[in-house]
Simulated scan of single mutants.
Amino acid sequence: MRNTLFGAICLSLAASIWGGMYVVSKYVLDFIPPVTLVWLRYVIAFALLYAILKIAQRKTKTAAKLEKKDWLLLSWIGFIGYFVSISFQFMGTKLSDAHTGALITSATPAFIVFFGRFVLKEALTVRKIVSLAIATTGVLIVVGWSPNLGNYFWGSVILVGAAITWALLSVYVKVASYKHSSLTITTYAILFGLLFTTPFMFWELAAYDIQAVNSLTVLGVLYIGIVSTAGAFFLWNKGLELMDAGIGSLFFFFQPLVGSFLGWLLLKEHLDLNFYIGGTLILLGVLIVTVHKKKS
């Protein structure tokens, strides 16, 4: 019960942090191009997590023993999740819009449930399916259906790819957690994400100029690197370690919910009745599976 509750808290915090990252990244991207920003967030996150990992290993007098197959799994997580999925999110949004991106990537939990069934052999229960359906309906109500969805064909295809690849990351993080700690997985997967991103960062810098940055831009980059990357990635991976991937996937829905709320709070965006109805359904869907899990 304690593990389930702690896992739920970790996943909720991670998704909430990502929901709020939109406000910060919207400002920072006016000064720094997207791939370069991804590279910077990974450099900062890896440096912080690696230092914490080494301090933890020194205190416990233990070190993670990584074999060749472990490195291959971590490189796969870094490639499919922290490189391909994040890149697809940027590309898909650029070819469509943020609204379409939020709508399509809300399919991520459904893909996690699907891959969890076939990769992790997790049970596909009626309760899990009903919870997913209720929470997904809530997201559709919060985000709303975009009439332009059909006009963004390639952007929509790429965003579906982003949802699929993030689902794969989540499932294989669960696989890796059977043998290694969340801190080890997050640290080295981000390192591989950084390595895969580096060539594209150099290409981008050759084509685009970075605008003169100010102190707010620097603080924004540090926030994205420390809180939204090192912190949120670790919390997401830790939560998946403690819960079934299919159940944990539902907490992904807190991302658009918190993003909408912070858009209202900080950017003066309008919240209508749909937000409250959809938000209630999202919370209901999450509660159905977590309360059931506690009682089992």
Rank of each mutant, 00 (worst) to 15 (best):
N3S: 12
G7I: 13
A8T: 12
I9D: 04
I9L: 15
C10T: 11
L11Y: 05
L13S: 12
S16N: 06
S16V: 03
W18N: 11
M21K: 10
V24K: 04
Y27I: 09
V28Y: 00
P33Q: 04
P34D: 09
V38P: 04
W39N: 11
W39H: 14
R41E: 01
R41K: 10
F46I: 08
A47S: 15
Y50P: 10
A51Q: 08
K54M: 11
K54H: 14
A56S: 15
Q57N: 15
K59L: 12
T60H: 08
K61I: 02
L66C: 07
K68N: 10
W71P: 03
L72E: 02
G78M: 09
G78E: 05
G78D: 03
G78V: 08
F79L: 12
F79E: 00
I80R: 08
G81I: 07
Y82I: 08
S87M: 14
S87D: 08
Q89M: 15
K94C: 05
L95W: 13
L95K: 11
L95P: 05
L95Y: 13
L95V: 01
D97M: 04
H99N: 13
H99T: 15
L103W: 13
L103T: 14
T105S: 13
S106N: 07
A107K: 08
T108H: 05
P109W: 01
F111G: 06
V113D: 07
V113N: 05
F114E: 05
F114P: 02
F114W: 01
L120G: 10
L120Y: 07
A123Y: 08
V126Y: 09
S131D: 11
A133G: 12
A133Y: 09
A133D: 07
I134N: 02
A135Q: 04
T137I: 15
G138A: 10
L140T: 13
W145L: 14
S146D: 15
N148P: 06
N148C: 02
G150R: 15
G150I: 09
Y152E: 13
Y152P: 00
Y152W: 00
V157K: 06
V160A: 10
G161C: 05
A163E: 10
A163F: 07
A163Q: 12
T165G: 08
A167V: 01
Y172T: 14
Y178K: 11
Y178W: 07
K179W: 05
H180F: 03
H180Y: 02
T187F: 01
T187P: 05
G193H: 12
L194D: 12
T198W: 13
W203N: 12
A206T: 11
A207P: 12
I210L: 11
V213H: 05
T217Y: 01
G220S: 04
I224D: 10
T229S: 14
A230R: 06
A230K: 06
K238I: 02
K238W: 05
L240Q: 14
I247D: 02
S249N: 04
F254A: 07
Q255A: 08
Q255Y: 00
L257P: 01
G259N: 04
G259K: 09
F261L: 15
G263C: 07
W264K: 02
L266Q: 01
F275E: 00
I277V: 15
G279T: 03
L283T: 06
V286C: 02
L287S: 13
I288N: 01
H292K: 12
H292W: 07
K295A: 13
K295G: 09
S296L: 10
S296R: 08
